[in-house]
């Protein structure tokens, strides 16, 4: 029951975040959702058995199911790489990570953003458009 409740809390939080306009919140939603999914996989192995699966068992009454554990282990790592990919997507688009079609004009955000845009034209930016940028990759 505790696992079921935990998964429920995580899913509720995840879905709420998924419905937000900012990409970062959506990503955090996915993080929570993968936690929930992992717990559900663990629950599928029956959480009444919690003895760590090491060595050879003669008495199986308390041994935890190793198969969901293996699945979850790889799932965590894959979720990590997908999270990083989504984070990269969040910073390679517009100047903020608002995914809605018409971003809300929040007074809080608009003011610093304007200065940020101005700050964005740093010497580094100029160099990026200079002809030298077209040089072939050397490796």
């Amino acid at each position: 029951m505790t696992l079921a409740i935990t998964a429920g809390i995580l899913v509720a939080g995840a879905v709420y975040l998924l419905l937000k306009p900012e990409m970062l919140r959506i990503i955090l939603g996915f993080v929570l959702l993968s936690h929930a999914a992992n717990l559900i996989i663990m629950a599928a192995g029956n959480s009444s058995r919690r003895e760590e699966p090491f060595g050879t068992f003669t008495d199986l009454t308390n041994a935890a199911d190793p198969l969901p554990q293996a699945f979850v282990l790889t799932a965590i790592v894959i979720a990590f790489s997908i999270t990083v990919l989504m984070l990269v997507l969040a910073v390679t688009g517009k100047n903020d990570d608002n995914t809605s079609v018409s971003p809300p004009t929040d007074a809080d955000d608009a003011a610093p953003q304007a200065t940020d845009d101005a700050a964005a034209t740093t010497p580094g930016d100029d160099a990026a458009t200079a002809p030298t940028t077209t040089q072939e990759p050397t490796s």
């Binding site: 696992l3 409740i5 429920g8 509720a12 879905v15 419905l19 559900i40 629950a43």
Partner: peptide, 13 residues
């Protein structure tokens, strides 16, 4: 939507 999805998850698990 979030709360109903959460309840659904708890119930399902």
């Amino acid at each position: 939507i979030a709360i109903s999805a959460g309840l659904a998850t708890t119930f399902g698990v």
